[in-house]
Amino acid sequence: MSDSTQPNANAVHQDTLPGLGAGRKESLHPAPEMPFGPSLLALAKAPGLGQKGLSDLVGCLGRDIGLLLEDDHIRTLATLQTAKIANAHRVAENLAQGRKDLIEKGRQEIERLAERTITLLSPEEIPPRLRALPDGPRWLFVQGNPEVLDDPPYIAVVGTRQPSQLGMKATEAVVRTMAAYPITLVSGLANGIDAAAHQVAVRDGVTNVAFLGHGINVVFPAETGGIRQRIVESGGAVVSEYLPDDHYKRHFFVARNRLQAGLSNIVVAAEGTASGGTAHTVRFAARYQRPTVGLQFDGAGNLAELVATQDTGEVVKIFDPAGRRHLDQRFRALCTDVGKPTNGLALVQHLLDREMKLRDIPRTDLEQLTARLRRLIEETS
């Protein structure tokens, strides 16, 4: 979403996450009976609390927010006041009066989410790369496989919602280069570059992580519903830090961009302008010291120029064979750095397996392929 506003960590929350590096004191009380997930969803429905209040409470209590749903009005009020919740007395009264109903609603909602393979990660369960951010998420809703959020390396491919034909081809070139290696694609499931990156990744066997700028129950834009389902079915994850039914807002998308940058080892800015929405991701990447690659080609816009001004940025001519090889070398080196095996012909093998399933391949065709491989081995020896 185009928006020239500078990325603002304070728009998400202002303090470092407690329990995630900011010294939340150990509770003097026993652990609450209510687990984190149903507690969060119960408190989300409490009148007078709101999104900010809920975030502040998680900041104060971490996974122990269920303490607020126990029958201890004095302690509840004291906790609300410690967390500097506005109208703490009124919120405490609302909790006291509606406690049983809230608890039942929280439990029912967490069960409905689980039926759709949606997991709610508590502060301590948030993946390390995101937990280490100064403005990281308080919690995460994950549809699909949450384990992919802690299995680097990650490369974000992001760009405009209104790409050119060359921009779409450039995006495909980047993802196909990734597909040879055990790399997970990160993007935002928006129309344009994001959707194209996810589609090519699913096609070529690349695992996907898609960050949403709205609640996990919302499908937006509607055109991405199919690719979202394929991401989940192929072992990837769709992720949101917003409450399940939260509708999309402009500042939600800006904040979402910080998670794309924060999780990634490299951010590839495929196409866009220095004043567009993708520029936020580039700036977040610079803030978090994530290497950024801007793609250069005819009509690419000036986003690559913004990337070039960043200390960790570089520009690659994606349709130049030398530029494509350079990108391949970076991706291979990234896998090596995190201890993942590399095979530059893994995509070729994937395509061969697919062709074998779709075609009636005679033995002679395989013999020709074998002969060609032998010649290539001799040429490289």
Results as ranks from 00 to 15, higher is better:
G106T: 13
V91N: 10
D150R: 09
D150K: 08
L77M: 04
D135P: 13
S122R: 09
P153Y: 08
Q143Y: 04
D135L: 06
I118D: 03
L113D: 09
T79I: 10
A132Y: 07
I126S: 05
P128A: 15
A78Y: 09
P153F: 11
P123L: 09
P153K: 09
P146A: 02
E115V: 09
G98D: 07
T117C: 01
G106K: 11
L140E: 11
V148H: 12
A88R: 00
N87T: 09
G106Y: 15
E111W: 01
L77F: 09
P137Q: 00
V148E: 11
I103D: 09
S122H: 10
A86K: 05
R131I: 13
T82Y: 01
A83R: 02
E115S: 11
K105Q: 15
I118C: 01
P152E: 09
D151K: 08
T82F: 00
E93D: 13
E109W: 07
L95T: 04
H89A: 07
E93M: 10
G136I: 00
N94L: 02
E109K: 10
I110V: 13
I74Y: 06
L140H: 07
T119K: 03
Q108W: 05
P146I: 08
I103E: 11
G136H: 01
P123N: 12
R112V: 07
Q97S: 06
L102W: 14
